[in-house]
């Protein structure tokens, strides 16, 4: 997901900890001024900041196509989408700030490579069809995870998710519509769509994180109400939702093991290449270096801009004091 493999802190055993857990069990939202266990606070910071970083880095693969969008309307929609993603990053950094960590600290962690972001954004966007796939599949997968998080235990995060989800479902519809236009188009366009699906399907499936059996950190996060469904549950839901859409589009999902299971009333599907997933998480994906380089370059090239604004603010403060 946008926050994959978030390391979870430990719960304490004090009376305060018990009272806290009791509040969560009664579905009482935790607000910034409320007491919270250190583990809860740290886990949330990791989760929210990973999510925020994913929104920020996620601008890059799609931003790659803003200058080349093939119609004025598609260009406008893509600009609006990338603008939304930057806005999501902003709300999420604000939500993280309520837990006592600054945006600058979090940015520093992203730029140094210390903080993680979603594995999905380390794949390249090679053709226009990739922009459609990101909207349809990546935003689609993000919604699966974020809709339940609207009910998560931490107030500012749950409220950020409510705003974000409205926009994500618009993104998904737009992505689907890009793909629809391609499959209704020329043979070349249709081939472009199928090729993009072949490349994006498995990375999208892996967005939900490792299988539950290998997912060591989930249990405490679920108790705390900051992870609401298991990775495999969400993955299954995503597959079940997406298969009929692919069929409607006349595209073939690149999984020979995919078939309807009458007993489970769900699709069975194959096993992703988890070695590839862990390799991308470790920083060895196709675009890991490019993404971090681009963010570092933007930050370094913009240093004079940020310093210039600070210098102006200092001058203005001094003038105001002198005038008093």
């Amino acid at each position: 997901m946008y926050a994959q493999m978030v390391e979870s802190g430990q719960a304490g055993t004090s009376d305060q900890d018990k009272a806290f857990q009791d509040k969560i069990d009664r579905n009482v939202r935790i607000e910034p001024r409320d007491w919270m266990p250190e583990g809860y606070r740290k886990t949330l910071i990791r989760q929210i900041s990973q999510h925020a970083h994913s929104e920020i880095v996620g601008q890059l693969p799609e931003g790659n196509w803003i200058t080349r969008a093939p119609s004025l309307q598609r260009k406008a929609i893509l600009l609006a989408k990338v603008q939304d993603e930057a806005g999501h990053g902003l709300y999420l950094y604000c939500a993280a700030e309520t837990l006592g960590v600054s945006r600058d600290e979090l940015t520093e962690q992203l730029l140094s490579g210390k903080a993680k972001y979603s594995s999905i954004f380390n794949y390249p966007t090679l053709t226009w069809a990739d922009v459609g796939m990101i909207g349809w599949l990546v935003d689609g997968a993000a919604i699966m995870n974020q809709v339940p998080l609207q009910r998560c235990s931490y107030g500012p995060y749950s409220r950020a998710m409510i705003r974000v989800c409205k926009e994500e479902s618009f993104h998904q519809r737009q992505g689907f519509d890009i793909v629809r236009a391609l499959v209704e188009g020329t043979e070349d366009q249709k081939a472009m769509a199928q090729d993009a699906l072949n490349r994006w399907w498995w990375p999208a499936i892996m967005m939900f994180g490792p299988p539950d059996a290998d997912s060591t950190h989930s249990e405490q996060s679920m108790k705390w109400g900051i992870k609401l469904n298991s990775n495999d549950e969400l993955r299954q839901k995503f597959v079940d939702q997406t298969v009929p859409q692919a069929e409607w589009l006349g595209l073939t999902l690149p999984d020979p093991d995919l078939k309807w299971n009458e007993d489970r009333q769900s699709y069975d599907f194959g096993t992703p290449d988890w070695d590839e997933f862990f390799n991308v998480i470790k920083g060895n994906g196709i675009c890991n270096r490019e993404r971090l380089d681009a963010r570092n370059k933007a930050w370094d090239d913009g240093a004079w801009f940020r310093e210039g604004l600070m210098a102006h603010a200092e001058k203005t403060t001094k003038q105001n004091i002198a005038a008093e």
């Binding site: 601008q59 603008q83 930057a86 240093a303």
Partner: peptide, 16 residues
Amino acid sequence: EWCGHAPVLEEDIAFA
């Protein structure tokens, strides 16, 4: 062309 490359997040948003 600035999307994702501006000096601060607020400028990414403003330019888009």
